[in-house]
Design a binder for these strands. Sequence first.
DNA 1: TAGTATTCGTACTGAGTGGTACGGTTGTCA
DNA 2: TGACAACCGTACCACTCAGTACGAATACTA
Lengths: 212, 212
Amino acid sequence: MKIVEVVPVTGSRRGRPRAGEREQRVDAVLDAALAELVAQGVDGITMTGIARRARASKETLYAWFGGREGLIGAVIERNADRSATAVADALEGGGDHRATLVGYGTGLLTLLTSDESVALNRAAMTDPSLAERLLASGRHRIGPLVERYLSSLHDAGTINAPRPDESFALLYGLVVQDVQIRVLLGERPPSAVAIRSRAGDAVDRFLDLTVP
Amino acid sequence: MKIVEVVPVTGSRRGRPRAGEREQRVDAVLDAALAELVAQGVDGITMTGIARRARASKETLYAWFGGREGLIGAVIERNADRSATAVADALEGGGDHRATLVGYGTGLLTLLTSDESVALNRAAMTDPSLAERLLASGRHRIGPLVERYLSSLHDAGTINAPRPDESFALLYGLVVQDVQIRVLLGERPPSAVAIRSRAGDAVDRFLDLTVP
DNA sequence: TAGTATTCGTACTGAGTGGTACGGTTGTCA
DNA sequence: TGACAACCGTACCACTCAGTACGAATACTA
């Protein structure tokens, strides 16, 4: 929600940009595209609308991103980057393993039910190449991080996870259940309290099923 | 896949229909719409294309379904009906409870990863009113069936499921994990063998977590 | 058999959108 | 300071598609 009201950091202006201004403007355009996506849905967004919200011209959008698909793809990639670093941070906290896992689960559910993630996943489902980018830059990058952590718990004798990929899938299923798909279909996302409670239950069950 | 090649049962023809012919033709149109949806995706389908495949005229489609949304909605509803009866049948088999649950899980995964279900879910995600119909005619009708079954197992002392809705969600998460969302994003669905094995594992874990 | 209801096939309209073109504006750089 | 690069704003084109219209064809019905 926080991005919807973002206005370009540097006021839009004709003429050659000041040095270093470009990156900020690219980011502002991506913010605008994401905000349009959240507000209108993938069918509702138009290049004109994004340009207007970003106070940029359509021609600039085409010059920077090649077209509609390139622009949405860039939004996906940027958000995947943010998610990946968030997960990496959560796992490298280095505290009690249950707390770490609950923190991860909470973050996962919060992310998956956020307006932005929902909008991007919906968009990706209408376009195979976007979907591939979403999987490649998201799940396929974040999964291994978690698997590595589970593997370290296994090596330390904390849990029994001889196949980290399967254990990751198990944890994911216990945490997410059918929440993501329901939110994607329009149900209201669970509250922060409900998410934390659900993550706690899920981790308890996970640890129950993987006692060494 | 079986529906893709379906041709209207009664050859299309101008003029007033024969008695009782209408229902078959409506079904043929719904088959055509679903086939187009599977083949082209929700963005690719057009009323013209559906009419051509069904050998019907656009005007007939508008007369019968009111428009694009009504037509897709009708497809969703028909498929939900079929799914609901399939689930009901699986649960009323009346054998060993583990086998019944594995049968349900297998059917669920097979359904959720089928071309038709994937196409309909993708379509629903682009349109709130379609999504609502999908949830109402699908999940919200099928969930209670399973919950009732779990409740009967609880009453019989077979499992410990004081809150059937939570137990249903748990079973769902264990069975489906992230398979549905990945298939929705374009990954290849698991094989029948993999599905059965996954359902077996999931039910074992479920029973493990719900010992009385 | 005449009349009517239902459907096909084709053509048409109107709206919306992706993408392109271009003149005007404003920083940057030599 | 003058040439140039990057960008805005607007207009424009080509295209697609939902929805409508209408005549022709065919089968029920009286």
